[in-house]
Amino acid sequence: MTVATRRLGRTGWTVSELGLACTRPWSGRWMDEASAIALIQQAVKLGITGFHTGPCYDGVRAQERLGKALRTLGPERDHLLISIGVGTVRLGRSQVIRDFSPDTVEQQVAESLDRLGLDRLPLVCLDRPESAYLTDDLMDTLAALKGEGAADLIGVAGSPQQITAGLVAARGTGLIDVIMPAYSPADQDSEAIIEQAALDGLGVIATGTLARMSFAEMDADWSLPRTWWQAKRRLTDRLVAAGQVARAQRCRFLTAVKGWSAAQACLGFVLSHPDVHSAVFATADLRHLHENAAASGRVLPTEVIRRIVSAHR
């Protein structure tokens, strides 16, 4: 089994249609470093070439672990699309702030290159910026990073409004190459901006593709670290994302699609969109990695796609 590839808009890159988010719980204390590195190695063997991380994910542990995994790959790593999100800064263990100042962005890029052991970053992505952060100085800094070879591509991630703000700030410059919108059976609000991005030749990498699996049954085995992680995540969802959870609950039928796991059905739906070039998911489980990779190259039944679209309305 090898994950299929797609052209990433007009960027000149070809990327696997499934990508791996190297965030929590992959970088968490519940998963040892050797297992985390082994998961990256297995993902590459399966044909996954897109890996997303950031300098604020679980402190710096996520980037450090990914860097150690990349160093085991040798020249093969030169063909991977490694992306980082910038502009989010973690203060201590719990406080997160937004800082898109040129100095901070330059520092995050430099430190990420060092942790990852790379000479350049294939993709540097603004992480959920608001309009007020998108200054001319920031655009100049991003252009300089690209021009100097520190970054091959520049992107913007977030809600439709945040992505639009980034595109407007860079209008006429050709600076933005990729967008990373949230898109899943439970969140189809980015439909219009995905279609427009494709018309403009931009690469589209979908995030949040598994709808946080909040509609599926939770693992019952409390001896497993992922069970505690699922419980914590669901509590957070219900406190801060009640609307999305309600949408996800309307997709419970995805747990009973014949021949598809719930996660595969989510990925199948995202990849059914002709303008999505890669769908990013997160996992810390080798079994889930193989299961999700098996969604590549398959066609989700039309009636299931129609039902997903109807459930979102």
Rank of each mutant, 00 (worst) to 15 (best):
H52R: 14
A62V: 12
V44Y: 00
V44Q: 08
G54F: 10
G54Q: 07
Q41L: 12
L73H: 01
A62N: 04
Q42D: 15
Q63F: 07
G47K: 06
I48E: 14
G59W: 09
G54Y: 05
L70M: 11
G50D: 13
D58Q: 06
A62W: 14
A62F: 13
V44H: 04
L70Y: 05
L73T: 05
G50C: 15
R65F: 10
A43D: 03
V44I: 08
T49R: 03
Y57H: 04
T72E: 13
R61I: 14
A69D: 10
P55E: 13
K68G: 06
G47V: 00
T49N: 00
L66Q: 06
H52Q: 12
Y57P: 01
A62Q: 05
V60T: 15
T72F: 02
I48C: 12
Q41H: 11
V60E: 14
R71Q: 13
L70I: 11
F51W: 10
G50R: 07
T72K: 08
G59Q: 10
V44F: 01
A62T: 10
T72L: 09
F51A: 01
T53D: 03
A43P: 00
A62R: 04
T53R: 04
G50H: 13
R65W: 14
V60P: 01
T72H: 07
Q41C: 08
T49P: 04
A69W: 01
I40A: 08
R65K: 04
A62L: 10
L66F: 13
R71V: 01
D58T: 08
E64D: 11
Q42Y: 07
R71W: 00
L46N: 09
F51L: 12
G59A: 05
A38I: 05
I48H: 09
L46D: 10
Q63A: 03
E64L: 09
H52G: 07
K45I: 03
P55K: 06
K68S: 11
E64F: 07
G47R: 02
D58L: 04
R65N: 03
G59N: 11
G47H: 03
G67F: 10
K68E: 10
K45Q: 15
A38Y: 07
V60L: 15
L46V: 09
T53P: 03
L46I: 11
T72Q: 11
R65E: 08
L73W: 01
A62S: 12
R61H: 14
Q41G: 15
R61W: 14
L39T: 07
R71Y: 00
A43M: 07
G54H: 05
T49W: 03
R71P: 00
L70T: 03
I48A: 10
Y57D: 07
G47I: 00
R61Y: 06
G50A: 12
G47D: 01
L66G: 00
G59H: 08
V44G: 10
L39D: 03
F51I: 06
K45W: 00
